[in-house]
C-alpha cells in the first residue's frame, strides 16, 4: 500500500523524514503556515519548517467530527490535537500521536511524524502531518 498526502504543498518528504512546508516573508522574515496562497504568496519564500519543538497547548478530540472530516465516523477513535512551538519560527496546529493522553504536558519536547487518517477507495493510506512526544 502506498501513502498519499492529504494535500499538495503541505508536507515535504525525504529520506530524513517529513517536514512542513511554510513560508518566510521576504521583507520581514516572519513565518507563515501553511504556505500562503493567492496574492499573499508573492511576498513569501518556501521554507521547510523545523522537525522539533515544544508542546504549547493541547486537547483531546473525544467525539467524531462531522464532515468535512474524512476520518472514521463509526468506531471513532479519539485523537489529541495541539499547538507545537517551533523555536524561532512559528507555532503550528497539529494532530498529536500518542498512546497516553494523560502523559501530554505543556512544554514537553515534540517531533514531527505522519499520521494515517483515512484510506482512498484504492486502499492507499491518506496521511497528514502530526507531532509526537520526542
Amino acid at each position: 500500500m502506498a501513502q498519499v498526502a492529504v494535500a499538495d504543498d503541505l508536507i515535504s518528504f525525504s529520506a530524513e523524514g517529513p517536514r512542513l512546508i511554510g513560508g518566510r516573508c521576504t521583507r520581514t522574515g516572519a513565518y507563515a503556515f501553511p504556505f500562503p496562497t493567492g496574492p499573499l504568496a508573492e511576498g513569501f519564500e518556501r521554507v521547510e519548517l523545523g522537525r522539533t519543538g515544544t508542546l504549547w497547548s493541547f486537547t483531546v478530540q473525544r467525539f467524531a467530527p462531522k464532515p468535512p472530516f474524512i476520518g472514521a465516523q463509526d468506531n471513532f477513535t479519539p485523537y489529541a490535537v495541539g499547538y507545537v512551538e517551533l523555536p524561532g519560527e512559528i507555532i503550528v496546529e497539529t494532530r498529536i500521536k500518542t498512546d497516553s493522553f494523560a502523559g501530554l504536558k505543556i512544554g514537553m519536547p515534540m517531533r514531527i511524524t505522519l499520521d494515517a487518517i483515512a484510506r482512498t477507495p484504492g486502499g492507499d493510506d491518506i496521511v497528514t502531518y502530526a507531532f509526537e512526544p520526542a
Partner: peptide, 8 residues
C-alpha cells in the same frame, strides 16, 4: 485550506 477540516 480543505485539509484543515478533513484532518479534524
Amino acid at each position: 485550506p480543505k485539509w484543515y477540516g478533513e484532518t479534524g
